[in-house]
Nucleic acid binder design. Structure first.
Lengths: 205, 205
DNA sequence: AGTGATTTGCACAATGGCGTGCAACTGCAC
DNA sequence: GTGCAGTTGCACGCCATTGTGCAAATCACT
């Protein structure tokens, strides 16, 4: 157990990765899962988890960091080189969807409090670029809403979360989810339903 | 402390009510607040809380029951005697908004798990009447969406939650929130932004 | 088979929350 | 002021969870 922190061996790496994966899934179900439950679910003993992560906070922190990173990347890729805000938003949603779906635990954790409020802070860069996108669209008439851009950004965020739940509950087929999400988000931002549908259909090859 | 369960005295009633109010607020901030924190916030000792509610579960259960009741009532009132699905949905949102905002803790709790999954069940009556409303609107063309009615209901729900957060964070003025919520929900359901705005403006006196 | 990294299986102290019991206290009403 | 509902303050016992220590077992690789 000496060089457990080194993590260069295949076994250790595999375990570390599995722990992270399982922890993600378990925390998704219940933000309060015990370290023991996580360990067992990963086919490992509690003590081993502590061999890879000094404490619960670090474990979750790693998860959150990974998630935010992936999310920010996808978001950036979606907007890259697209000037029309409407199309940019559509592309963003399509790009972000798979990652957001995977790291859905962010919601559950963000919805909680105090110590976890840091998550909201970490997400602000993503959110603020969303706001900028929406603002531009509202200014030049591509979007239309009763809400100011920042509030609209909240709504967009929540819509995605709502659709994740819907997918979870089998109300929307997985393979259509991303397109449906993009279309719904555009619609919520005041893009006529028919235009939203054709635009998204054209973008999603 | 003998007849503490009777609760006919003014003092006991006042305390019970204050405990419920404070518990709502505290649970809103953190679904995991301790009974002690709730008690202190209510200006009372922990032991006294147990005088009114046998255990934490009962306390929360009371809160949830009250919330669901109020929500269902408001929802029913909103739809009462309105045949046009679009207008009915708008009225529903306007009617439900204040109650939903007050009992926002439902979100946090519902988002959590296992023991609390009962909440989603208790909410199904409300949700299913929403679904029926949306379905009717989709059928007769008032609504338009890439989603089936049940999924759209999830989205509507989440939009409301998102707006509550936005209000919380000062992004939307409280007095405009209800109208903005109604307009946004209609827009998300594919009602043209201009029509949604005028309709809601006409309904909200 | 040997070596070093990794995992396991205990045992441990510490924390913190829950629910309860009981005696003393407070306030209001009569 | 006597009485009684309600409250307080402290006492428990109980349980789950966290993070650590250490020796033995296990694994991968040579």
């Amino acid at each position: 157990m000496a060089a457990m922190t080194t993590g260069s061996t295949s076994r250790a790496d595999a375990n570390r990765r599995r722990i992270l994966d399982v922890a993600l899934a378990e925390l998704l179900r219940d933000p309060d899962v015990s370290m023991d439950q996580i360990a067992r679910a990963a086919g490992v003993v509690r003590r081993t988890v502590y061999g890879h992560f000094p404490n619960r906070e670090t474990l979750i922190g790693t998860l959150v960091d990974d998630a935010v990173q992936a999310l920010a990347d996808a978001h950036a890729v979606g907007r890259a080189g697209v000037q029309d805000p409407v199309e940019a938003l559509a592309r963003c949603v399509l790009a972000v969807w798979p990652i957001a779906d995977r790291y859905r635990l962010l919601v559950a954790l963000a919805q909680r409090t105090v110590t976890m409020q840091g998550i909201r802070e970490r997400l602000t860069p993503v959110r603020s670029s969303s706001v900028e996108l929406l603002q531009r669209g509202l200014d030049q008439g591509g979007f239309r809403s009763a809400l100011p851009a920042p509030a609209l950004a909240y709504v967009v965020e929540q819509i995605l979360f709502g659709l994740m739940e819907a997918v979870n509950d089998g109300l929307v087929p997985t393979d259509e989810a991303a397109r449906a999400a993009a279309t719904t988000v555009l619609t919520s931002a005041g893009v006529p339903a028919s235009r939203a549908a054709t635009l998204v259909g054209r973008i999603a090859e």
